[in-house]
Design a protein around this nucleic acid. Structure first.
Lengths: 322, 322
DNA sequence: GTACCAGCGTACTACGTATGACGCCGGATC
DNA sequence: GATCCGGCGTCATACGTAGTACGCTGGTAC
């Protein structure tokens, strides 16, 4: 090792100094000399060798099915900031972990170069195993077998429903995501619970499914808005769906919120761009990402961290008020 | 190594078989036995050891300043598909490579665990160096020092301007991205070139800058739309800006496209959700990502690949027509 | 029968780092 | 003066793989 030669010490000493284990083992003078030599030579430790020897790569993978959803970028950002503070790196892996097997990217990285995984998941297959014994923390999905961090969709839904209720809406439809997954099941359950608590039969309400894209959401929304028993308000599983519904209402000449009120979820940037702007249930994705990393980090240290549920906030705009 | 023991061969033989170098060195019978043993034991080669020994990690990093932009996810998807076909993995790194130095994630990964980098860049600092001698391919930025892949913004802008011209628009404003960078400079230059070619002075047109978020774009758009010398059409650097302008027009009671026509770039999903839907210049981000990976891969093989410029397509919707 | 060869497989080393075991040295203790 | 001890460093090894050089076996050619 060149750095060792230049500093006039052994390779072991260099390793001790640069990995921060110097105190009590190496004098300040020597440590400074090593650091100076390393800087002058532009030395960078080899990550592969370090990972091989130490068994830890100081890197965690964030696995996501679709990186495109705007909500996700902010989750990543939160995880990344938390990771950086702990001296780790987050690498993002786009992968449809279909069944926890195969030669997916996750499997490819699971041995040696990644310490653990954050699964950003609408739904997690029952068959998911911790690949190569690497710990996993699930983001936005709850199950008994694995640690998780998720959003309080129940609370958010309850707040949105209470808001609509206070505006006089009794029959409220549910425009659901066809993506499936716990997130949306929770919203649907909380929606149904509210209706039942106010003497309505959820089964009798107008509901429909659409995907998170304009073509699908507008087409389905048009159909829902054309029903003879159209409700006076719709809870939409996501701002993208809500935007689709508003676009459909505009096309059909239905006034929002006069004839139909619309509520979304997530408070995407898009929520301010629709006409009218969207009332929506906001979450804090950065906090979600940070909490997820912290759980994983605790597990890597051998701990047994507690699962977390993060709160929501209702943002009222013109699609329900005025 | 357990696999070797189980198959009754040496570790060397296992390595030969599993890395595909068996033909001519190992008999089919032995090779099959090794593969069977590996499968039964659920053996996964250690990526760190492999990277250390071979000097290549079969992984490339895609570095991006902000993963949130919808356009980006699709670029990643394209790169990932191309990489998978070549037996590589793409990891995504969110990093503001501010000056090519520091203890950024890029630097942290540059030695040993990543073979090369794709820089998805609005702008690339002059000081950017290939970290640790790892090759870089720039995405959507052109300079003489490094290989690049970019979109034909000139051609796209020319098509959009020709379209507006054919509809009778002579004075055309430019709603510009404050993000800066070559992409937008090219669009601005092509916009100016068109105007000059038709006897207009670009300097005399209405222009303004905004960021890619609703707050900024709507506020600036309102100001532009309120100018006494408001043009009959606006070219917007991005669909997000265009959506902001449409939202602002709606708020101000200005009819789109009757009083002002709006054109965006990228054909984001959002482009179908605005009211009216957006005429926009579409690119193929998947192709961009794939081309970028292919250039990097060629460089890793020691080649000197040619830079590439990918074509555009004008998508006409209601924000300019009828 | 000797020499050679092709086919098949193995021993061994290197990659660059982390770390446990050990060694040296000067000062303090009795 | 012999012993011990704390402070400071170094030696040597191991991590799991790739690849080079070598060795064995049985058949073929002379």
């Amino acid at each position: 090792m060149d750095v060792a030669k230049r500093a006039g010490v052994s390779q072991s000493t260099v390793s001790l100094v640069l990995s921060g284990k110097a105190p009590g083992r190496v004098s300040t003078t020597t440590a400074d000399a090593v650091r100076a030599a390393a800087r002058e030579l532009g030395y960078r430790p080899n990550a592969a060798a370090r990972a091989l020897r130490s068994g830890t790569a100081s890197a965690v993978g964030l696995v996501v099915r679709d990186v495109t959803h705007p909500f996700f970028g902010r989750t990543l950002r939160g995880a990344q900031q938390a990771a950086r503070a702990a001296g780790h790196v987050v690498v993002l892996i786009q992968d449809d972990y279909s069944g926890g097997g195969g030669d997916s990217a996750v499997q490819g990285l699971s041995e040696g170069s990644i310490d653990g995984f954050l699964f950003f998941a609408a739904k997690v297959p029952r068959s998911l195993r911790e690949p190569g014994g690497r710990p996993i923390v699930i983001v936005e999905y709850e199950q008994s077998r694995m640690p998780f961090v998720r959003l309080d969709s129940e609370g958010g839904t309850a707040a949105a429903m209470a808001h609509l209720h206070a505006l006089g809406h009794a029959r409220i439809g549910h425009f659901r995501s066809s993506a499936g997954g716990q997130t949306f099941d929770r919203r649907h359950d909380a929606w149904a619970a509210h209706l039942r608590a106010h003497g309505q039969d959820p089964e009798a309400q107008v509901t429909g499914f659409a995907a998170f894209d304009a073509t699908s959401s507008i087409a389905v929304a048009k159909e829902l808005l054309s029903r003879p028993d159209r409700p006076s308000a719709f809870l939409c599983d996501d701002d993208l769906l809500a935007a689709g519904m508003i676009a459909a209402a505009n096309e059909l000449g239905i006034d929002v919120p006069g004839e139909v009120a619309v509520v979304g979820f997530d408070d995407l940037d898009l929520a301010r761009l629709t006409n009218p702007p969207l009332t929506t249930v906001r979450f804090d994705p950065e906090a979600l990402g940070a909490a997820a990393f912290e759980l994983l980090h605790a597990r890597l240290q051998g701990g047994r961290p507690k699962n977390r549920v993060l709160p929501s906030e209702l943002v009222v705009r013109a699609s329900t008020a005025g």
